[in-house]
Each structure stands twice: as structure tokens, then as C-alpha cells.
Simulated assay, not measured.
Amino acid sequence: MSERRQHSRHQTGLTVEVFDRHTGRSLGRLADLSSEGFMLCGVDVPAVDSVWDCQLVPLPPLDEVGEIHLGADCLWSRGGTDGQLGWAGFHIIDLAEDQAQALEQLLGYLEESRAGH
């Protein structure tokens, strides 16, 4: 498979839960993140071509980064089998300016935590 990403992705050194803002349903946990998209893993991952109003919640909470709200389109999805977690990849399609700043702060935090390992 050819690499199509234009921005580097950062492995998450902390837990970031992803929720549907409308229902509160957990979509999964971030596996990696970039300014353009993210990959998550979870028990019941969203279907391909579904659009979500997401809430990213760092756990434990970070003083410098609050919850991040964004719209995302599920580009691919692979459900888990036999009790395994599923995986899904998303493209960020809607991000307010203040939320973009929060996302950049989170990316900076992830970069720092990765460099410290």
C-alpha cells in the first residue's frame, strides 16, 4: 500500500478516548494522530464512510490541553474478530480555529512525550 499521508503521525504516549459528541458513545482510543487525521482502536469501530462529531478526551486530563471537538470522516474500518479490537482511520473534516490550536498543543505534547522515551 502506498503512503498517502502528508503529515507525520505521532504514537500516543497517553490515553486519548474518542467519543461521539451526540450520543456519548465511545468510538475507541487513539492509536495515532496527525493534524489531518487519526487512527483509533476499539471494540465496536465505526463503519467506512460514516461522519462523526468527535470529542477527543486525554486521560488523565492535561492542564494545557482540554477536550478537542472535531468532525471526522471514517475512511477505512476493520472490525475485530474473536474478541480482538477493531481499527478505523479518520480524516479530520471540520475543526474550529480554537480546536485546531488545542489539537496542535496535543500534537506538541505527544511529540515531547515520545522524545522523552
Score class of each variant (00 low, 15 high):
Cys74Gln: 12
Glu36Ser: 15
Asp73Gly: 03
Glu97Met: 06
Val51Ser: 05
Gly86Pro: 04
Pro58Asp: 01
Ser50Lys: 14
Leu40Val: 12
Glu64Gly: 08
Met39Glu: 00
Phe90Thr: 14
Ile93Asn: 15
Ile93Ser: 15
Leu33Met: 04
Gly86Ala: 07
Leu40Cys: 06
Trp76Gly: 09
Gly83Leu: 10
Pro58Phe: 04
Asp44Lys: 13
Asp98Lys: 14
Glu64Lys: 15
Leu70Asn: 07
Asp82Asn: 15
Leu95Val: 10
Leu95Asn: 08
Ser34Asp: 08
Ser35Asn: 07
Leu59Lys: 11
Val65Asn: 09
Asp44Trp: 04
Ala96Met: 04
Asp73Leu: 13
Val65Thr: 14
Gly79Lys: 14
Leu33Trp: 02
His69Cys: 04
Gly89Val: 11
Asp53Pro: 02
Leu95Ala: 03
Pro60Gln: 09
Ala102Asn: 12
Ile92Tyr: 01
Trp87Glu: 01
Ala100Cys: 09
Glu64Asp: 15
Asp32Ala: 07
Asp49Met: 11
Ile93Gly: 10
Ala88Gly: 06
Asp82Ala: 15
Ala47Pro: 04
Val48Gly: 01
Met39Ser: 03
Ala100Gly: 04
Pro61Phe: 01
Glu67Ala: 14
His69Lys: 15
Gly83Pro: 12
Ile68Arg: 00
Leu70Asp: 00
Gly89Met: 03
Asp63His: 05
Glu64Thr: 13
Asp63Phe: 00
Leu95Ser: 08
Ile92Asn: 08
Asp32Val: 13
Ser35Ala: 14
Arg29Lys: 13
Val48Lys: 11
Gly42Lys: 06
Gln99Val: 02
Gln101Ser: 07
